[in-house]
Design a protein around this nucleic acid. Sequence first.
DNA 1: GTTGAGCGTT
Length: 265
Amino acid sequence: MSQYIQVAEDEIEEPIEIPSEEDGSLLLTTLGAQFPGACGMKYRNPATGNFRGIRLSEGRLHPPDGVWGHFIYIVVFPKENKRKGDEAVENPHAKTKCLDKQRCSDLIVLGLPWKSTEDDLRRYFSGYGDLLLVQVKRDVKTGQSKGFGFIRFAEYESQAKVVSQRHLIDGRWCDVTIPNSNEGAAEMISRKVFIARCTEDITADDLRQYFSKFGEVVDVFIPRPFRAFAFVTFSDPKVARALCGEDHIIKGASVHVTYSSSQKL
DNA sequence: GTTGAGCGTT
């Protein structure tokens, strides 16, 4: 029969009571309704003092030895959410940690009228939430718009809403999607990452300072003359790997992190 | 001065 199970974000937080299904299993979706981004549960085994994982099968969590009992269960979130130096970890408001799974990305806006400006885009999309980036791509010589641009929201909810519909901007229907990130060689192991789309005012110090919050930076290299990219080397390859595929805003520019294509390991 | 699927000065 259905019962209520005590679940908490961690051992010091107050538990929430969450209902199981008729067969005693707990739907992961039910857990996710209270703890967005949750991927499992664990509990402290009194006999050993260790955590024990709860069995998950086809979206259902199953009680240990057939009964939930009086334990307080702890929600488990994906490992990426616990990245060292991530601001969500330092944030005292634990709730933001759950939403961390769904991070904002840059969004491409396709089909813009030739005349649309960044101000037009900002005016239009600010109705959906706070914007961290607004760009209209132009021919560097003529200044003529290429008919597409990029935006980025502060909140994932804004992003989710915007990509779910078409947009009438200055009389033309535009599509907004997550851009093609050229993440081909995913499983290479390296401490060095390639930083694409750098602007000329981003210095080596800027890069070092910015990326240090994710892990120890051991080298920064910016090719001269300016070529709009740079290399950052971390002491820990795990930090490099975690950052790959991400976009980061530095001095107003959305830089893109990948592994560098030509690399001697 | 033009255009209308795509992907951001590697």
